[in-house]
Amino acid sequence: MTLFSPRPALLAGAIAAVMFSGTASAADRLYVFNWTDYMDPAIIEAFEKKYDVEVVQNYYGSLGEMFSKLQAGGVSQYDIVVPSNYFVPRMIEAGLLQPLDKSQLPNMSNLMARFVNPPYDPDNQYTAAYLWGSTGLIVNTKTFPDAKPSWSILFDDSVNTSQPFSMLKDGQVMFGAACAFLGKPYNCTAQEDMVNAAKLMLKTKHRSNFTGFTDSTPVLGQVSRGVNALGVTYNGDYLQYKHDDAEGYANTEFMIPKEGSELWVDSMAIPARAPHPELAHKFINFILDAEVGAQLSNYTFYSTPNQAAVEHLDEVLQQPPSLPNDEDMARLKFTPTLSGKDLQRYQQLWNEVQSR
């Protein structure tokens, strides 16, 4: 979700200058547009060696940034892009993606059933799943030793009367969380539900212990250090940081709220006018290999959509929170794709939540 999400700001300038300088044959290059730190460098090296090519990576820090870059000409500059599920229909409608040639993707058969024929891309016409995960709460268990997995710890001031907390910068995720707390589906889109969710977030924002809107990565350090007592993040980010600093994250826990939360999928797609579509198909098929798929998850700490990869995963990725239990999975929903009046309404309401 992303996202990610796990994903810091754009580092495009210097890289883009190299990408399009023409100092080497463009036919020998694959141009990948991805979230930052979302790929094991060893996988890139293995692909380069196998196909005798150079992979040039460029990065984005948000889905809106990625979308705008493609609309501004990137659609003919990149061979691979990695959008989150709720942006895929928007990109298809805008003519930014080309259909996949599945005859070049035999490893598509490795995908788990839940990622075949997904609602955001029927019959996987344009995308192949890359990684997936869930959105939830990170809680300081010293501050909240009896914390329950519920959005109430965020939105109910009688549950959290004074401890500092933040909300996520991703507006659609927060609208889903607010809807779920109010007893509506996480993937709500009805006008009344969206308005009530905005009112709840405004009320929450004006509490004295609210510290601001944050990205998923900074909030992890804030909660582990006690700067915030809780926040919203992604399971893979949490696992990665806990792995890197087990002692620092000993008093934290990742929770999927009982009212419902986000299941997100980041997928590989080929821009509509990609310069090297055949090589792009080779890359997608390479990532969908069982051992490569496991290597990608073991590096990022996000869940694999690759059934054949599961046996190669590190142990931490074969249990919650990387693989939610059946009860939690039943509560997870895709963030809806908004368009037309629904998108305009969301954008207006989110702007009001942030500015008022």
Rank of each mutant, 00 (worst) to 15 (best):
M1R: 03
P6F: 08
R7S: 02
R7W: 03
A9I: 03
A12C: 10
A17M: 13
M19C: 14
G22R: 14
G22T: 13
N34C: 10
T36D: 02
I44V: 14
I44S: 10
I44N: 09
I44Y: 07
F47N: 06
K49P: 03
K50H: 11
E54L: 15
V55G: 11
Y60I: 07
G61W: 02
S62A: 12
S62V: 00
S62M: 03
L63I: 13
G64M: 12
M66L: 11
F67A: 11
L70I: 06
A72N: 10
S76E: 02
D79W: 12
D79E: 08
V81K: 00
P83N: 01
P83H: 04
S84K: 01
N85Q: 00
F87S: 01
V88E: 00
I92Q: 03
L96S: 01
L100S: 04
Q104R: 13
P106T: 13
N107V: 13
M108R: 15
A113Y: 07
F115H: 10
D121Q: 06
Q125G: 11
T127V: 12
S134W: 07
I138P: 01
I138E: 04
N140F: 11
T143M: 08
P145S: 11
W151D: 04
S158D: 08
T161F: 07
T161D: 07
T161V: 09
F165I: 02
M167R: 09
V173H: 14
G176R: 13
A178K: 01
C179E: 07
A180K: 04
P185Q: 04
N187K: 12
C188V: 03
A190N: 12
Q191A: 11
N196S: 12
T214A: 07
T214F: 11
L220W: 06
Q222D: 08
Q222P: 02
V223S: 05
S224E: 00
R225Q: 12
V227F: 06
L230M: 05
Y241D: 15
H243N: 14
D244Y: 10
Y249E: 09
A250V: 02
K258G: 01
E262H: 13
V265Y: 05
V265C: 07
A272E: 06
A274I: 12
P275H: 14
H276E: 10
L279W: 06
K282C: 09
F283K: 00
D289G: 00
D289N: 04
G293L: 02
L296F: 02
S297M: 06
Y299D: 02
T300K: 05
P305V: 01
E311N: 09
E311V: 12
H312P: 06
D314C: 02
Q318T: 15
P320F: 13
N325T: 10
M329L: 15
R331M: 12
T335V: 14
L343E: 13
L343Y: 10
Q344S: 15
Q344V: 11
Q348P: 03
N351A: 15
E352S: 14
Q354E: 15
Q354C: 15
S355L: 14
